[in-house]
């Protein structure tokens, strides 16, 4: 009888937005759990696992991860919304992380940003209409000796002159 249990009742009603955790992902999350003293520690990795498959972390995944790890949904959503590499909204097929920190600022980040923005037709936090690129700012990429720098998916590039953009973007469909 669900109404004898406060802590399960409403989440069943509101969380069922059709997301199911892939069996492999559940297994991977449970394996991660073993690396730490408490299950909650696997939470960030769990979000990344879901994101790897889906491109982003859909609402339903929050409850699914909470359930898998035995952690409150509020706590999982609190974590998911804290970290900038966890996407709680859909992103494009390729994510560009453009370093906006001081050394890149000193070597031309703002010009690069403007050119890139114009070329893609989007600003920070936006995705191109063809879903090809999402553009995001990022903290210092630790590539300051070759600023301005950026990352596309897992690849880091720098220094990037505006003229390099065509060649750079070409490889990412």
């Amino acid at each position: 009888m669900s109404d004898t249990r406060f802590y399960a009742a409403a989440s069943i009603a509101t969380d069922g937005d059709g997301f199911t955790l892939h069996a492999d992902d559940r297994r991977a999350i449970l394996a991660e759990r073993g690396h730490y003293e408490q299950p909650q520690a696997a939470c960030i990795e769990a979000l990344k696992i879901v994101q790897k498959r889906n491109g982003w972390v859909p609402d339903g995944a929050i409850a699914a991860i909470a359930d898998t790890l035995g952690v409150g949904v509020g706590a999982v959503e609190g974590v998911a919304t804290f970290y900038n590499l966890i996407f709680r909204q859909p992103v494009g097929r390729n994510v560009i992380l453009l370093c906006d920190s001081s050394s890149c600022f000193l070597t031309g980040f703002e010009e690069l940003r403007d050119v890139l923005s114009e070329r893609l037709g989007i600003g920070f936090g936006e995705t191109t209409a063809d879903d090809r690129f999402t553009l995001l700012p990022t903290c210092c990429l630790g590539a300051c000796d070759r600023g301005p720098a950026l990352m596309i998916n897992d690849d880091t590039f720098g220094p990037i002159a505006p003229g390099d953009l065509d060649e750079l973007l070409e490889a990412y469909s």
Binding site: H35, Y36, I44, E45, C139
Partner: peptide, 27 residues
């Protein structure tokens, strides 16, 4: 030793925030 990769945020470098992040919490 285990490798723990983060999910962004400068503040994770502050050592106690880092510990919270390692524990799967807000940093």
């Amino acid at each position: 030793i285990a490798l723990h990769t983060g999910a962004g945020r400068y503040i994770c470098g502050e050592e106690t925030a880092l510990i919270n992040s390692l524990e799967g919490k807000r940093a």
